[in-house]
Amino acid sequence: MLVLAIDTSSPAVTAALVTTDGEVVAARSRLAPRGHGELLAPSIADCLAGAAGEVGAVVAGIGPGPYTGLRVGLVTAAAFAHARGIPAYGVCSLDAIDSRAEGASVVVTDARRREVYWARYQDGARVDGPHVAHPHEVPLDGVSAIAGAGIDLYPDAWPAELTRLPSRHPDPARLAALAWDRARAGAESEPLAPLYLRRPDAVVPGAPKPVSQR
């Protein structure tokens, strides 16, 4: 069985077909901070075109990430699963960024507005987060390594002694692996609820302004 893995939580618009043995049979990842809507569907089509075998499940990174791109990935995953009558599973996108290290590590990604999304990992498992915070507010006590695009965005925010891991964006093989148990067991489809971590900006209007001078 093939798993269609999709992630649009970062500027890397990612689609891939992964076998349940972990082999990536086709993958497209293109950097386009505002191109998710244009690039994702053609990337999936490209992956499908060359692949032999049935797609039996969809796995999508549910963020956190900038909202418009994130929604493109999630609605694409949900619609594809519905159309093909296959289950869809959600995975925290930060978990798909490789942060394996000796001791604790953090993953930091771009949350725009001078903030990062972050999560903390211990022995490959997420132990805190995901959260959104200013780079300098990310707790780093006991952390030995750091991964994710936030490294390069805020280079001064991270102590020199932290090991910079190479992984910057969610990796499709990891995305798929995080949902294997569910896919293999034929678990029920999940609603793909995005991790926004912020409320929408909206202001309740006050009283109408007077229009005439008295």
């Binding site: 809507g37 569907a41 493109v72 609605v75 694409t76 995953a77 594809f80």
Partner: peptide, 13 residues
């Protein structure tokens, strides 16, 4: 963006 992405996905699938 939401509707366009959904429509593309339905058409593709």
């Amino acid at each position: 963006h939401v509707g366009v992405a959904a429509a593309k996905s339905y058409a593709l699938a």
